[in-house]
Design a protein around this nucleic acid. Structure first.
Lengths: 164, 164
DNA sequence: TGTATTTATTTCATAAATGTAATATCAACA
DNA sequence: TGTTGATATTACATTTATGAAATAAATACA
């Protein structure tokens, strides 16, 4: 019934061929992949009317979530989970669209300061209702306690990933 | 201490700016993104000695997990969660490397049959121990019950994503 | 049979992501 | 002060992913 079944089915066969294969970890990794792809596609679809992509949205939201709407590329890379080369490209795009502004920092001239522009702030105000609706829809059947539980478990998973 | 903190911190500020923003759903989506990136990078690193990428690995494993090691591109797209254009490119690469074979189907000549080659099967046998070790490491701190719980919750999440 | 529809796959143009190297500034300290 | 090493950012080349259109075979059915 769901898109995961073909994947899960193949894992069962894999286990018959290779019994040492760790089923649970593999299931989790594959579920995460499926979910990520879906979430990514959905976000792109919702954002299309504003002409921005999901990664661009993430950048904008990380700036929106920063006091003063200002940070520099390396902080942005951390917050958005993108590599620095991607940050350069994405912030160029957003500059071209007039949504953020780039200025050289005075104290440390290696640094660059990125700030949300008025237009960027305005656009966020426009698409946020659609994004909120999407997020609500995507989790409509999940109970609050389930989401909290998932958050806890995913954080533990991420922690372990980063240590290993 | 972990890479998610900057992201979570920004979500807190976002909520002050825009209280209607659904915190839990947003947290989950961002955790999934972080986890996926990490898992993807780790797998690429482990597979590098064999000269294959994570998506190529996924293709090979979906074939390994199929009776007769044979399927056609559209089944493969479903199982691997890749778009069909990607399947063409990836299966071309794997053909070039001699890991899979492509033949025209007799019953339905629109279809193409992809089969794991002897070399492909052999390579899987070689890298599986390293992959198993990776999966075990990545989930070392997770208890069996926690993984089972996460599987259940992630499946429910994915189901909802696909219906909305 | 002939025509229209649907399904399977690929091609091609474009966009997105990544790794590596290059550039520039800063900090430390002899 | 000058030199060294570290850090921040960007540029460039390459790989990877995607969407949309093209091709070709199967199916439905008038």
């Amino acid at each position: 019934m769901n898109s995961f079944q073909p994947t899960e089915q193949r894992l069962a066969v894999t286990l018959r061929h290779y019994p040492a294969f760790p089923r649970e970890p593999a299931i989790l990794v594959r579920l995460v992949k499926h979910i990520y792809k879906r979430v990514h596609d959905d976000a792109n679809a919702v954002l299309k009317p504003w002409g921005i992509s999901h990664p661009e949205y993430n950048i904008l939201m990380m700036m929106y979530g920063t006091e003063g709407y200002t940070l520099n590329p390396s902080q942005l890379a951390d917050a958005a989970g993108e590599k620095s080369a991607n940050i350069t490209r994405l912030s160029n795009q957003l500059c071209d669209k007039g949504l953020i502004e780039r200025t050289a920092s005075d104290e440390d001239r290696r640094k660059v300061t990125l700030t949300l522009s008025k237009a960027g702030l305005a656009m966020i105000g426009e698409f946020l209702p659609a994004i909120c609706a999407l997020l609500e829809r995507q989790t409509a059947t999940l109970k609050v306690a389930e989401m909290a539980q998932m958050e806890k478990l995913l954080k533990k998973f991420l922690d372990q990933l980063e240590q290993s």
